[in-house]
Design a protein around this nucleic acid. Structure first.
Lengths: 252, 252
DNA sequence: CGGGTCATTGACGTATGTCAAAGGCCGTGG
DNA sequence: CCACGGCCTTTGACATACGTCAATGACCCG
């Protein structure tokens, strides 16, 4: 799909409105944000480690990872970002970053100047709160990742990652919990789960053996969602995706 | 030290002003927040898992952990909070929490109604931004924990945790990187690092053997900070504690 | 003095890592 | 259209860091 800056921003307003009540004017203000679209090959650093940025990255298409650094060259992915995610919205308030952003698959990204985002936040308390909430959801996911990597065994970890991605992909209508495209190699899943590529491969085999999922090429097919959830000990509430019903979530 | 609500809030404004420029009026507005002080024994749930809260918790004294849940009873601490931390400030925008808050040592906490915090944020863009930034720093620490637990071995993990706590305790003038009180048992450090109590014990022994630290009773004495940092592969930039010098950090 | 929590230590088990080789898949260029 | 090279996946044999279990000792408080 060919994107314009505006259609890209629409993905972002959709994401925000999953959790925050925004009216027409506010949505329009966000859609009017300036930004430039960029296409990237896989394995390109979009933001380099330790850089000071002056723009935020809205993922429009593809899969992007946030990488932490360890001295000996091993890498840890601390977040996976799918279309609709403004993956470094927090850099608006902390411009010097302590991570790197790298494309995992061919991706297109809309770069939006901090200045514009910040101005918008300062001018509307509702938008400001929506941004704050979006960053807090990101943190909630990070907490869950700490639990995942810290206290679950390899099988649970990988299953949990698949569950999370399924639900998130479903929420942006790129597949469903019955199946979705997974543009990540086994080595990349390993970097996200704190495992090795070899072990991820064996876990995939186990999951197939359980009859829970089929993973072929870049496609995940979930054969038994309940089983997968059970294996993963997955509880999606941390994603905070319950649909708003016109109520004000801050006051919920 | 006996605290009043106001002296407790002073800890929080100090913390905010480490990273955000706030003027006198704004500080005064925060100091005027309502709130009630509570004392807790160790191992008390201050906020229960899955609860919907209507207040945020400012740690005034003691040590508090944020716990993630795993089905089989094993626990993972996803964040450690020291005095000055408003450990669930993000609950203002996400009131239904997906974690539990438990005291690790005798603690005193100021409970502040969401309503008041939210009103303040909506009325001042600077304060709103300071809150947003504070939550983003929290997320930055979480990222680092994912890296720690995902890609560092036990020795590095524990050393990293000690480095982080040393720097944070120093930043609130409760000790320094030469030594500080550590009100956590080995089992609790294990829950924070994704290890077992037995193994933490052995790692403590190794660190002592390296001549890097002495850990006695509830007291950590750092004998060789550079060595500890080297072992841990520690880079404190993720804590975002560089002092402001009157400049606006958003525009840095 | 006695009971509880915490720290320490040893013997042993195991999940996961490491190393290495082979096979599948796919795009590129001859 | 085939051959080649590159990346990814798969598999096996083996190594090891960390977990588990269990016992003992230290410390603290009632």
């Amino acid at each position: 799909m060919r994107h314009t800056a505006q259609s890209a921003l629409r993905l972002f307003t959709n994401r925000l409105r999953e959790r925050s009540a925004l009216d027409e004017t506010q949505v329009a203000a966000i859609l009017a944000l300036p930004g430039r679209l960029h296409d990237y090959e896989p394995r390109i650093d979009v933001v380099r480690l330790g850089e000071k940025t002056d723009h935020a990255c809205l993922i429009v298409d593809g899969l992007v990872g946030r990488f932490g650094q360890v001295i000996d060259g091993r890498r840890q992915i601390t977040a996976l970002h799918i279309p609709g995610d403004m993956c470094d919205l927090h850099s608006v308030v902390i411009p010097r970053v302590s991570w790197a952003l790298q494309t995992l698959s061919p991706s297109t990204i809309l770069r939006i100047p901090h200045r514009a985002l910040r101005a918008l936040a300062r001018q509307s308390p509702d938008i400001s709160e929506a941004f704050w909430r979006d960053c807090s959801v990101d943190a909630s996911v990070l907490s869950q990742w700490v639990v995942n990597v810290g206290r679950r065994d390899a099988l649970q970890r990988v299953a949990h990652m698949l569950c999370e991605l399924a639900v998130r992909m479903e929420s942006v209508h790129l597949g469903s919990r019955a199946g979705f495209r997974l543009e990540a190699t086994q080595a990349q899943i390993a970097d996200a789960t704190g495992l090795t590529a070899v072990h991820v491969n064996r876990i995939y085999a186990t999951l197939r053996g359980e009859g829970a999922v089929e993973i072929k090429a870049r496609e995940v097919r979930v054969l038994d969602w309940d089983r997968l959830v059970e294996i993963a000990d997955f509880d999606e509430s941390y994603l905070h995706l319950e649909r708003l019903r016109g109520r004000d979530p801050g006051a919920e």
